[in-house]
C-alpha cells in the first residue's frame, strides 16, 4: 500500500486551521527561467499549501488566453519537461526545494513523449507529489495511473459541473491527493462570479470523494469562496496577470492571508 498522500495531508492541515488550502499555479519558467524559481520560493514562503507548476504545451485546450499566452512564452524561452525535472531534482538534492508539496499540471502529449515510466520515476525523485492532466478523462487514465501510482505520485482527477455522480464514483474509486472541481463551464481565466451550481456540485463531490475537493478555474479573490465549502482553492490566471503587471508572488499571496 502506498504511503499517505503529501497533498492530502497539506490540504487537511489547512482544514484543521479552519481555512481552505491555497494552491497557486504558475507556468514553469514564467515570467522567465530564472525569476520563476524566485517566485516559486516566494509562493512557498507566503502561504501556499500546495504549489501547482504548469508544464507548457503548444495546444492547451483547457486553458484561457492568459495561461495559454504565458505557456507559449515559456515554450519560446526553451522550457521543457526535462528542464523542469532537472531543476527540481537539483533543488531537492540541495535542500532548497519548496516545503509545500508540488503538483505538475500539463497536457497528455508532452508526458507521453517523455515516457510514462520516466515521468513517474523523475517526478518521484524531483519531489513532485502529484500530476494533473486536463485532457485525460477516466477512459484514458489507465496507463498513466498505473505508472504514477507505482512511484507514489498522485494522479489528480478533474471533474466539472456537468460530471454525474456516477462518473464521480468512477474517479473516486482510486482517487489520491485531492480532486479538482472545475468551477466554470469553460477554460481557465478569472471570472467575476462563480456559477450558482458550484455550491451543490461541491457538496456532491465532497460526499462521494474520500479525498479533499479543490476548486479551480475562474478564481482570483478570496471573497469568491465565501459560503463555498471547498477544501482548497486553485488560482493561476490572476497570479500570472499580477506578475505581468509588475507585481510579485509575495504581493499576490498577501491578499489571501
Amino acid at each position: 500500500m502506498n504511503a499517505p498522500s503529501k497533498l492530502e495531508a497539506a490540504i487537511r492541515a489547512a482544514t484543521a486551521h479552519g481555512r481552505p488550502a491555497l494552491i497557486p499555479f504558475l507556468p514553469a519558467g514564467y515570467p522567465n527561467k530564472d525569476r520563476f524559481w524566485t517566485e516559486l520560493a516566494a509562493l512557498d514562503a507566503h502561504g501556499a499549501d500546495v504549489i501547482e507548476i504548469g508544464v507548457p504545451f503548444s495546444d492547451p485546450v483547457a486553458d484561457g488566453p492568459v495561461v495559454e499566452a504565458a505557456s507559449l512564452e515559456c515554450l519560446d524561452a526553451g522550457v521543457t519537461l526535462a528542464w523542469i525535472m532537472t531543476e527540481l531534482k537539483a533543488r531537492a538534492a540541495a535542500g532548497t526545494a519548496p516545503k509545500a508539496p508540488l503538483v505538475l499540471m500539463g497536457y497528455a502529449n508532452p508526458f507521453l513523449q517523455y515516457g510514462l515510466q520516466a515521468l513517474a520515476a523523475d517526478a518521484a525523485s524531483a519531489g513532485v507529489a502529484g500530476i494533473i492532466i486536463p485532457d485525460l478523462p477516466y477512459e484514458e487514465r489507465g496507463p498513466f495511473l498505473e505508472a504514477l501510482s507505482a512511484a507514489g505520485v498522485d494522479l489528480i482527477p478533474l471533474i466539472g459541473l456537468n460530471t454525474s455522480p456516477e462518473r464521480m464514483q468512477l474517479y473516486a474509486r482510486n482517487a489520491r491527493g485531492f480532486v479538482y472541481l472545475v468551477s466554470v463551464m469553460g477554460v481557465t481565466g478569472e471570472r467575476d462570479t462563480l456559477p450558482e451550481p458550484v455550491k451543490a456540485q461541491l457538496a456532491v463531490a465532497r460526499s462521494l470523494f474520500p479525498v479533499p475537493v479543490a476548486l479551480g478555474f475562474g478564481i482570483s479573490r478570496p471573497e469568491q469562496l465565501k459560503n463555498l465549502p471547498a477544501d482548497a482553492a486553485i488560482f493561476g490566471s490572476a497570479l500570472i496577470r499580477h506578475i505581468k503587471q509588475g507585481g510579485d508572488a509575495a504581493g499576490f499571496m498577501a491578499r489571501w492571508q
Binding site: 477516466y138 456537468n162 460530471t163 463551464m185
Partner: peptide, 11 residues
C-alpha cells in the same frame, strides 16, 4: 484513437 479531452467534454 481514444478520447483525450477534458472531463467537461465527456458528457
Amino acid at each position: 484513437g481514444g478520447q483525450f479531452v477534458p472531463e467537461l467534454l465527456m458528457p
